Computed example of a mutant assay.
Amino acid sequence: MDPRLIDLLAQWRAAGGIEDAPRQFPDHADHLLVIEVDGAGNRYTHYGQAFVEHFGADLAGCVIDRLPAEVLPADRRGMLDFDYAFVRRGNQPLWRSYTAVFDDGDAAETWQRLVLPAGEGRLVVGAYPVAPPAPDEEPGAALLRMVLDRVPVLLDESGGIGDLALSLRAYCDHQQHLAELEWRATRDSLTGIANRAHFHHLAGLELGHTQRMGRWFTVMVLDLDHFKRINDRWGHATGDRALQAFVGACRQALREGDILGRVGGEEFAIALPGTNEVAARVIAERLRAQVEQVTLEADDGSLGGFTVSIGVAAWCEAMAGGEGAPSVAELLKLADAALYRAKAAGRNRVEVAAWADRPRAEE
């Protein structure tokens, strides 16, 4: 364990009780977190300045469980939940070494964290970055480091390793559970594609990238024509199969790197990074024709099909005359207006929005 955390552990044992951790442990205050239960979540009531400077955000007062994925990914949130619940339940210190790429950096960093019970459900956490392992590290030491990097350690009265907080088998089960939770949080359960929130997140990242690179960015909004008739005639099970078949057709028509999401019942959206409106229309027409070839088999054995209407909206900074970049939501709204025109013109059509048609704020 890092000497700074050994010192913090010794001071915690000598204190006998914790009332104001930053004041009681001034040498560690910048590297301390104080966490209190807030309903079903955990709130930072103290967030050390070292974390603010290193990670670029002051999370004091924030509820950990509600932080967005780009601030605290699901795997890291699950790890924190486990550690904090374990210490509250067992009322004894827990230490973890953790290696990851933080804050969109290029290189992995190793941090050591010490979680200390502070009474009444409160926790004090000390965390310090440590030197990376040596390139010529002995295989045995590397294996031990790998284990400690994944499994938290309970500390005995002398500050030594008392026990592992969970078995390696339990750790693997825990990681699989976290992966399943991450999938469920970001995916549409019926079709397996991005759900509305995850689509907006991914499309937003791509929009920012294309803006920096001076490239085109296009979105499409797609709506299955007369979808209610499918449900009414053949039932919701056939309607579900229609949605799954539609997604299959989209995957055949789209390119690697295009982003497909389900944003409503029978409404979908696609983001096309680096694609102008001419190329987007070609892709949309190919997709429309692909969907037109889909054949559904209902439970009663009868066959049927369906079509899709598509609205397209494209943007690039040069075309927009130097105006600021729109948001993904603004582009989708513009594409949605084109979709309504496609519906009004007879459905099973592609309509492309003109940038000049976008809604403008009143002067």
Rank of each mutant, 00 (worst) to 15 (best):
Arg196Ile: 00
Gly159Asn: 02
Leu5His: 07
Pro139Lys: 06
His46Val: 11
Glu351Phe: 05
Arg88Ile: 12
Leu80Gly: 09
Met213Phe: 02
Gly41Ser: 11
Lys333Cys: 12
Ser309Gln: 01
Glu182Ala: 15
Gly56Trp: 10
Ala342Lys: 00
Phe199Arg: 01
His177Ser: 11
Asp357His: 04
Gly239Asp: 11
Ile161Met: 12
Asp299Thr: 04
Leu116Glu: 05
Ala57His: 03
Ala242Trp: 12
Tyr98Leu: 13
Ala127Val: 02
Asp223Thr: 10
Val328Asp: 01
Leu143Val: 11
Leu80Ser: 09
Asp27Arg: 15
Leu254Gln: 07
Asp136Gly: 09
Thr295Phe: 00
Pro68Tyr: 11
Glu137Ile: 14
Ala320Ile: 05
Gly78Ile: 11
Val71Cys: 10
Ser189Leu: 06
Arg77Tyr: 03
Pro273Glu: 08
Thr238Leu: 10
Ala280Pro: 12
Pro73Tyr: 06
Ile230Pro: 05
Met213Ala: 15
Thr275Glu: 03
Ile161Gln: 10
Leu334Gly: 06
Val291Asp: 01
Asp163Glu: 13
Asn348Phe: 02
Asn91Ser: 12
Ala21His: 09
Val312Met: 08
Gly61Gln: 06
Ala57Ile: 14
Glu277Ser: 14
Gln244Asn: 07
Leu80Cys: 10
Ala179Ile: 03
Cys250Arg: 12
Ala344Met: 00
Arg358Cys: 02
Leu9Phe: 15
Phe217Cys: 03
Arg169Ala: 15
Pro117Met: 03
Ala344Lys: 05
His28Asn: 04
Phe306His: 05
Leu181Lys: 10
Glu317Phe: 02
Val219Pro: 13
Leu168Glu: 15
Phe268Ala: 10
Glu317Trp: 06
Trp355Gln: 03
Glu363Ser: 10
Gly140His: 00
Gly162Lys: 08
